[in-house]
Amino acid sequence: MSPVHYVALSVILFVIGGVGVLVRRNAIIIFMCIELMLNACNLAFVAFASMHGNLDGQVIAFFVMVVAAAEVVVGLAILMAIYRARRSASVDDANLLKY
């Protein structure tokens, strides 16, 4: 398969993940959509690695995974703290910073 197909699939997954972030209200679901976007990027990197013939893309994808893991840890901890305080996991409820 030529890498174009993989990159095209990556684009589709990325956009779907982006739409998910925008329309869902549950914080955890939004997180998971962000993870989907990160995965799509990983796919693109690996496709580019196979295209260029060196392993740099894979190494970058590896680092992206590490960073995504760290981000999930901290993000979910924040979410837990907010939930304990407000008893709600909906992002629409945190709307005090408005005009």
Binding site: R24, R25, N26, I28, I29, F31, M32, E35, N39, M65, A68, A69, V72, V73, L76, L79, M80, Y83, A89, S90
Partner: peptide
């Protein structure tokens, strides 16, 4: 191992803790 096995499981743990019934 890492992504599906650890990160996603972490998601599920938090889901269980705070919002298994939460639905939009």
């Amino acid at each position: 191992i890492v992504y599906t096995g650890a990160v996603l499981m972490l998601f599920l743990f938090v889901l269980m803790l705070i919002g298994i019934h939460s639905s939009d």
